[in-house]
Design a protein around this nucleic acid. Structure first.
Lengths: 132, 132
DNA sequence: GTAGACATTCCAGTGTGCTGGAAGGTCAAG
DNA sequence: CTTGACCTTCCAGCACACTGGAATGTCTAC
């Protein structure tokens, strides 16, 4: 399978496939006599794994670490589970932060209703933002 | 006030101050005979505004648009309010997305408990990730 | 034999908000 | 008069995941 066909079938652009190879996400495939990459069907599974992992918010570096374990003949399950748990914790933190931010924004938007634009202080650019 | 002192007093590194000037967040200050930047005290207010805006998640581009209005002699309040409302909506969307992601992660982590690493399929890298 | 649809490599850029470093000029203290 | 702390400009790079384009080679069909 040439790179264009793999791109078609996997939905991953050829450019990206070469990039994945470069950063170690895909093993360098066999080459035809003329130097064309010749992929086996299994890379479609691998690309599906990469896409699913990305959708969960894993970075290509993390995904690579999982793939590397698998290539080394190790069972990546434990490592993957840890990544998923870590990611969940990070999402919790992010949600907490965003909620706090949203609360502050709501506060400012509410305050805006009781502020007169005519009182807006040029030195502070706009009185809607910043300490009251 | 030289750039070093402003950096000290505002907590914004000198390098960043020059960068802000370059991208139009700070007006180019007066220069001493030897070419040193000579800041007036008011930029401290402006930097405070920038920091507050950043803390709310506004980009430097958005902040610049607000400052530009103010420099043009316009009242930025309406624009600022819109930015805040937009930002709040964006945060809502992000939180929704993250919650969905967290739910999926929880699902996968739960499923992991009932899966045997020994069944992990090498072709799919790890059976903890991806369709069941 | 030639068009055009593929493939190759390599270099460089995207966006965001800085940060580092080199090469040089200036200023105050000793 | 020198030392060291400041300042200047300019060029380059970080992280992240690609993406674009140039220059070149190859394969298939007509």
């Amino acid at each position: 399978m040439l790179i264009g066909e793999l791109a078609q079938r996997s939905g991953v652009p050829a450019k990206t496939l070469r990039y994945y190879e470069e950063i170690g996400l895909l093993r360098p495939p066999a080459r035809s006599a003329s130097g064309y990459r010749d992929y086996v069907d299994e890379v479609i599974d691998r690309l599906a794994f990469i896409k699913s992992s990305q959708a969960l918010g894993l970075s290509l570096g993390e995904i690579r670490s999982v793939i590397a374990m698998r290539e080394d003949g190790d069972e990546p399950c434990g490592h993957v589970l840890q990544l998923l748990v870590d990611r969940a914790a990070e999402i919790d933190r992010t949600i907490r932060d965003l909620r706090a931010l949203k609360a502050e924004l709501r506060l400012l938007v509410d305050r805006a209703k009781s502020l007169d634009p005519a009182d807006c202080d040029a030195d502070r650019v706009c009185h809607l933002i910043g300490p009251p």
